Every structure is written in structure tokens, then in C-alpha cells.
Amino acid sequence: MLTSLQNPLVKQIRKLHSTKERQKQGLFLLEGTHLLTEACAVNYPLEAVCCTPQWQADHPLLWQEACSRSDRLEIVSQEVLAAIATTVQPDGVVATAKRGNIQTQVPLTGLVLALETIQDPGNLGTIIRTAAAAGASGLWMSGDSVDLDNPKVLRASAGQWFRLATAVSEDLKATVKHCQQQGMQIVATLPSATSTYWEIDWRKPSLILLGNEGAGLSADLAAMADQHVKIPLSPGVESLNVAIAAALMLYEAQRQITYQ
């Protein structure tokens, strides 16, 4: 059992709390039983799995799954687990996985999201979870957005991170242009739009543009849209949370696709 906070593996995993170290090591963190379960369900390659004796005893089948997919397995003390986790009360297991398996492409069919400069990991994780639930094909995000493998993103996605095609675009305008050339309609939300989001035909392959939490969508990207739509708001309300805006349009699209 690992009990020392000075153990090399413990030190290595603790460093993964930072963006710079995740990029340097080519690894990211999976915290908790649910995320580990989802990773195993899609055969995502694991690097190391650390758990407490109690967790191992409570989850024998998942432990066996982890054993078959991990390069290293360690039983650790509760103190060590608390040190390597980013959560306040970890539930008994923390794993590391390889960053190299993050996707680099997203399908050009169905419903796809393109996110510009999203900064809040909770928002990104919630959008991923909602997009998966609404049957979206995938999600693009700009290179200056929050890290796709930020621990809070994974937790907020409730495991759907592993199931939705997601990719980072270092030139989001070029990506949007490519989607447009492939026949996707580009939809942007703007307060000045005359059409509401339920008035357009979502049965066409569509790319939904969503912008930064504070600044919104950049003018250059908004100008590329084929359709500008608004989400009606009561007087005095300036805007909606970006994850809520995404959910409204995704589910209107799903309604049209399913029932019209």
C-alpha cells in the first residue's frame, strides 16, 4: 500500500492538477467510480489506477475491469487518495489516462456545436452532457477555451465526455467554413436577430455557434452564420447561461427531428 506523499507516483499524479503538467505528461485525471466506469465501458486506455482498500472491496468487478485496462494499479491510503484528487471528498478511486486518445475530428452530419472561448469548466462539461443527451453528433471548441480534460469538465459531463465526439480547433473560423462548405447550416444566437430559435429548420445538418460567457460570440464568427436566431428574454434579463442556451436549441432541434 502506498502511504507516503513523497512517493514518485503520488507526486506525478498531484502535478496533473495543473494544465501545464497534463500537457507535459500527456495524461489527465479520472476521479471517482462513475468516470472510471464510463472509461472502462468504452475501453479507454488507462495509465494508473489508485484506490483505497475499502473501494477495492466494494467494487470487485470494476477493479477487475481496471486491472485489464491499466498499466499500473496501486492500493493507497486515504491520505494519499485525498492528496492526488482535486475533489474535497473523493469516493475512493483516482485514475490517470492518456491524453493522446482525445479525438481530433467531429462528424459533419446531424447537430454539432462550435464553442468559442468558453472559460468555465462547469459550463463545458454541462454542454457536453446535454449534447450527448440530445443526440448531437459532436462538439468543436476553440483552442483558447478551457482544457477539454480539465477535471471539472469531466465531472460536469457525468461521463458523457467519453461518448460525445469532441475536438479542439486552433482555427475555429476555418473549421466553421469547412462545415459550411460540406453543406451544414451555420446558426448563431444574436440578441438583435429577428427569428427565434424555434422558427428555423433544424432537420438540416446544423452547426450551432456559441460564444464566451461574458463577451458572447465574436463579430467575425457571427458574420459567418447562415441563420441568426434569438432566445426571447423577459425585460431586464440580459442573457442566459451558455449551457442553458445550448440545451434550448439542441432540444428544439431534437423535437423537430423526432416529431416533424
Rank of each mutant, 00 (worst) to 15 (best):
residue 252 E to V: 08
residue 231 I to T: 02
residue 232 P to W: 12
residue 245 A to C: 06
residue 58 D to W: 04
residue 119 Q to T: 06
residue 73 L to K: 01
residue 2 L to M: 09
residue 185 Q to R: 11
residue 169 S to D: 02
residue 128 I to Q: 05
residue 224 M to N: 05
residue 131 A to N: 01
residue 69 R to H: 05
residue 31 E to V: 13
residue 174 A to D: 06
residue 108 L to H: 13
residue 185 Q to E: 04
residue 203 R to T: 15
residue 172 L to N: 00
residue 70 S to G: 10
residue 64 Q to N: 03
residue 209 L to Y: 11
residue 59 H to Y: 04
residue 46 L to M: 09
residue 2 L to N: 02
residue 5 L to I: 12
residue 136 A to Q: 02
residue 50 C to T: 12
residue 246 A to M: 10
residue 168 V to K: 03
residue 120 D to Y: 12
residue 35 L to P: 10
residue 71 D to Y: 00
residue 13 I to G: 02
residue 104 T to V: 07
residue 79 E to R: 07
residue 137 S to T: 09
residue 117 T to E: 12
residue 216 G to P: 05
residue 30 L to K: 09
residue 156 A to P: 15
residue 108 L to T: 13
residue 45 P to H: 11
residue 4 S to Q: 06
residue 52 T to F: 08
residue 16 L to T: 13
residue 98 K to R: 07
residue 183 G to C: 10
residue 201 D to L: 07
residue 245 A to M: 15
residue 48 A to F: 05
residue 174 A to G: 05
residue 156 A to K: 12
residue 66 A to P: 00
residue 54 Q to A: 12
residue 87 T to R: 10
residue 132 A to D: 01
residue 50 C to S: 06
residue 230 K to Q: 14
residue 57 A to Y: 01
residue 140 W to N: 09
residue 95 A to T: 01
residue 4 S to F: 05
residue 44 Y to S: 08
residue 205 P to T: 04
residue 212 N to V: 09
residue 199 E to D: 13
residue 11 K to P: 00
residue 61 L to S: 07
residue 189 T to A: 11
residue 89 Q to H: 11
residue 34 H to V: 04
residue 136 A to D: 06
residue 152 K to D: 03
residue 154 L to I: 12
residue 93 V to R: 14
residue 100 G to Q: 15
residue 77 S to R: 07
residue 102 I to D: 10
residue 49 V to A: 03
residue 4 S to T: 11
residue 14 R to S: 07
residue 252 E to S: 10
residue 13 I to W: 01
residue 94 V to R: 09
residue 222 A to E: 03
residue 243 A to F: 11
residue 2 L to R: 06
residue 178 H to W: 06
residue 103 Q to S: 09
residue 23 Q to H: 14
residue 106 V to G: 09
residue 23 Q to E: 11
residue 137 S to V: 04
residue 195 S to W: 04
residue 67 C to L: 15
residue 227 Q to E: 12
residue 176 V to T: 14
residue 74 E to A: 12
residue 171 D to F: 04
residue 79 E to Y: 08
residue 251 Y to T: 05
residue 130 T to Q: 02
residue 214 G to I: 03
residue 99 R to N: 08
residue 3 T to C: 06
residue 93 V to Y: 11
residue 99 R to K: 14
residue 145 S to V: 02
residue 190 L to V: 03
residue 167 A to C: 12
residue 242 V to T: 11
residue 159 G to H: 05
residue 243 A to P: 14
residue 241 N to D: 08
residue 157 S to M: 02
residue 175 T to S: 13
residue 241 N to G: 01
residue 80 V to R: 15
residue 231 I to L: 12
residue 7 N to V: 03
residue 36 L to Q: 15
residue 49 V to K: 00
residue 182 Q to Y: 01
